[in-house]
């Protein structure tokens, strides 16, 4: 194992090692109860720990979207309840999953990467290996499971909060009344969009968690390297979230 940590190579090497890491996440656990306990801990870290920032940012994104769209519509022939409709659709299809993905790439990604990097540096991962624990499966598997479960929930919270933010902002600024905004929210509901939102959330959760864990798990050297690994985790996760966003939009909307 340690050879793989000290090894370095080009993109093909990293992609290969990343795929092998993902494969090892799905090996049979030594004791399911311990993995379950760790998954619950990670669900709390990733999910509960990120609720407040998701609510805060989503509220203002919804509010800004409503105000700017209402500004664009003012003076046109388009009825103002369309503000509610557009805010709802843009949040469900794009803003809630993508903005949440990017926020979580920063918050959760750097956290996971530095947690694993520190465990590597302080020989905690070596200690687990010597005990005979499948370290990748035990340390990364529960994080992936927690992210794939909790990030869609966070994205739903984000969409609801964003729409609420739009409603409050429209009403407060006087651009669009809460009655008109609500009418817009309720019009033309497409269930498939919710499915797309949840699919995006699960894929983003998988990508940002696995990439960050990869960076942290294979970090070695000094604390400076852990900082660099965290930066790489955030940058690569963000880029992959945006690429996946495009690919999913293309695949799922066609």
């Amino acid at each position: 194992m340690a050879e793989y940590i000290h090894a370095s190579g080009g993109p093909i090497f990293h992609i290969g090692r990343y795929i092998l890491m993902i494969k090892r996440c799905f090996t049979r656990p030594e004791r399911a109860a311990m993995y379950w306990k760790e998954t619950l801990r990670q669900m709390s870290n990733i999910g509960v720990g990120s609720v407040m920032i998701i609510i805060l940012i989503s509220f203002f994104i919804g509010a800004v979207s409503a105000v700017q769209f209402a500004y664009n519509l003012s003076g046109s022939m388009v009825p103002m309840y369309y503000v509610g409709y557009v805010v709802k659709e843009s949040l469900i299809l794009e803003l809630a999953p993508t903005i949440s993905g990017l926020i979580l790439a920063g918050k959760v990604g750097s956290n996971l990467s530095s947690e694993l990097g520190t465990m590597r540096l302080t020989e905690q991962i070596d200690a687990l290996e010597i005990m005979g624990v499948n370290t990748i499966s035990y340390l990364i598997g529960p994080k992936l499971a927690a992210a794939i479960t909790m990030i869609p929930i966070l994205v739903v919270i984000s969409a609801i909060t964003g729409i609420f933010g739009g409603l409050v902002a429209g009403d407060l600024t006087g651009y669009v009344s809460s009655v008109d905004f609500t009418q817009g929210i309720l019009m033309n509901f497409v269930a498939k969009n919710i499915y797309i939102m949840l699919t995006k959330a699960a894929v983003f959760g998988f990508l940002l968690t696995s990439i960050s864990c990869y960076q942290g798990f294979y970090a070695y050297g000094s604390s400076i390297e852990i900082g660099k690994a965290s930066t790489r985790a955030v940058v690569l996760s963000s880029i992959m979230v945006l690429i996946a966003d495009f690919v999913l939009a293309w695949l799922l909307l066609n």
Partner: peptide, 10 residues
């Protein structure tokens, strides 16, 4: 194994 820095889980 006893590690140099203890390697206790934080």
């Amino acid at each position: 194994m006893l590690f140099q820095g203890g390697a206790l889980f934080d």
